[in-house]
Design a protein around this nucleic acid. Structure first.
Lengths: 120, 120
DNA sequence: GCTATTGATTTCCTTTTGGAAACCGGTTTC
DNA sequence: GAAACCGGTTTCCAAAAGGAAATCAATAGC
């Protein structure tokens, strides 16, 4: 009996690996939302993010920001102001995620519409 | 003192909500990989997926497939063959995720290249 | 001196996720 | 009848993710 498996080990896993890489950087409940906020605003303070990203707590926010900084998707700048403020800004590299996130936004919007249509 | 917060509650949260919606459907270690495999092959059996999606266990695979089916991204067809086989297939609706996943794949590929370049 | 604000960190806890192994039921092959 | 293949489910456990609240350090205003 011949094999009929068409699972193309090399080509297939290469695609899946890339997808996996992307997901790893963006996984979790908050990272994409933070990036999304930073894509819209450019230069946002910690407390602004607390208000923008609905429901996030201080611990999560600071942890996620650290990870994003390590991956060079954002920069962190401490400002020498009255009460110390910190500005987060998306990097040029971070901006390359724009297309990915935009597609997610488009799809999410249509999906939500579809859910409402189905109910009616 | 005037407010200098520029967090645009309505417009902003609408974008973030859509992103959140998409992420929710695709979150977890396996779902996108499964969809990716189904996008490449169209009609894949359970055991094929076990082999294609590297490292997944039976429990996870069947659980993830159930969730994808509930969300109408894939269909499940039981075939009346010698040892019973089950074919999973992506739906037309599931195919609309193609652009999202494709962007992820592109970005992941470039990101991996960038990592190697930086090391050199 | 007390309180508020900003940007965190730490502790403690609960929930979610994921994995390994056993088992099941049906069918085929030896 | 034993073993193997297919497509699961169940149990039991470990690890990861996430949240609430307390704390902290610096500074500003009252």
């Amino acid at each position: 009996m011949e094999k009929k498996v068409a699972h193309n080990p090399e080509g297939c896993s290469k695609h899946l690996l890339a997808i996996r890489d992307t997901m790893e950087l963006l996984s979790g409940k908050w990272k994409i939302q933070i990036i999304g906020a930073l894509l819209l605003n450019d230069k946002v303070r910690f407390m602004d993010l607390m208000r923008t990203v609905d429901g996030i707590g201080a611990k999560m926010l600071s942890k996620e920001l650290q990870e994003l900084e390590i991956n060079q998707l954002i920069t962190r700048t401490v400002c020498d102001t009255k009460p110390i403020t910190v500005e987060y800004q998306i990097t040029e590299y971070g901006k390359t995620l724009k297309s990915v996130i935009h597609e997610m936004e488009l799809w999410g919007t249509k999906h939500r519409q579809r859910l409402f249509e189905t109910v009616e």
